[in-house]
Computed example of a mutant assay.
Amino acid sequence: LSDPALLEFEYMRWIAMLVESRFERDSRLRVLHLGGGACTMARYFAAVYPDARQVVVEIDGRLAELVRHWFDLPRAPLLRIRVGEARQVLTSLSDASRDVIVRDVFAYNRTPVALTTLQFTQHARRVLAPGGVYVVNCGDFRDLAVAKREAATIGEVFEHTVIIADPAMLKGRRYGNVVIAGSDLPLGDSPALARDLLGGAVPAQIKLGDQVGKFAAGARVLDDSEATTPPGTKSTGTELHGA
């Protein structure tokens, strides 16, 4: 807790590396976190990007209160916690108002379908400023069916898509995390990033361009019609003041 720059989960380190490969540390990043938890990623970015302005969207209001009470979170306007449903909040935001969107939302062991679809991803792109990065944590099983469809969906919306995961996950050997990201500018092509990803406790590979297309080949783009409940279109989120 005394070192917010220490990330225990590998997928969080991969997200951090990817964002840092795009934005210099003196950037005044505008970051939207869909899924708050203990605000681990928000604390990390606050430490690495001291001038960042961040909003964390968390559906569990009681959890948000406890996190604010327990942990040493930056105060507003550096970090705000907004209690609400991720899609409803996203669709309410202004065009080109964020530089980074991190989606890390789970119900049990899967991300709700309404937060994975083409329509949702189009909203994410609308909210991103030019050159912004949309990055998601996708949990999947050995068949990688969900990750392939997410990669196909993000690739349908963004000109440039990357996938980061460890080799065992990419070979379908276990359940785990796949990080997928999209941008309207080239992303993840830094040799330094590839070296950094290989150097972690769980070495990871990054797939770009045609490699992503090959990974997602034959996978259907996710659509709102597959969501079990109609996606919201109006925000009902509330902000925790002092958050």
Rank of each mutant, 00 (worst) to 15 (best):
R75C: 07
L118C: 02
A47C: 08
F23K: 03
V113T: 13
S27M: 04
I164H: 04
V221G: 03
A194V: 15
Q205N: 14
G37N: 10
I163Q: 04
A243T: 11
T116Y: 00
L6W: 12
A152N: 03
L197S: 11
L187D: 10
R13D: 03
G218F: 04
F120Y: 15
W70S: 15
V67H: 03
G199T: 09
G131C: 07
L79M: 14
F215V: 01
G237R: 10
E8L: 15
A52H: 02
V105A: 11
L170V: 01
A107F: 07
A227S: 15
T236G: 13
D72R: 15
R30K: 12
L1K: 15
L7N: 10
A124L: 05
D95E: 11
P130F: 05
A96I: 00
F45M: 09
V162E: 04
V19M: 06
L93C: 11
V221F: 03
L63C: 02
W14S: 14
Q205R: 13
W70P: 06
D184M: 10
V48Y: 00
R195H: 13
A76W: 07
H123Y: 11
A243C: 05
A165F: 00
G213C: 06
V221D: 05
F9M: 14
T91Q: 10
T40C: 07
A114F: 05
V100Y: 02
V89M: 12
F45Q: 05
R62N: 10
A16S: 13
V67P: 10
G199E: 14
Y134C: 05
G35Y: 05
S190H: 11
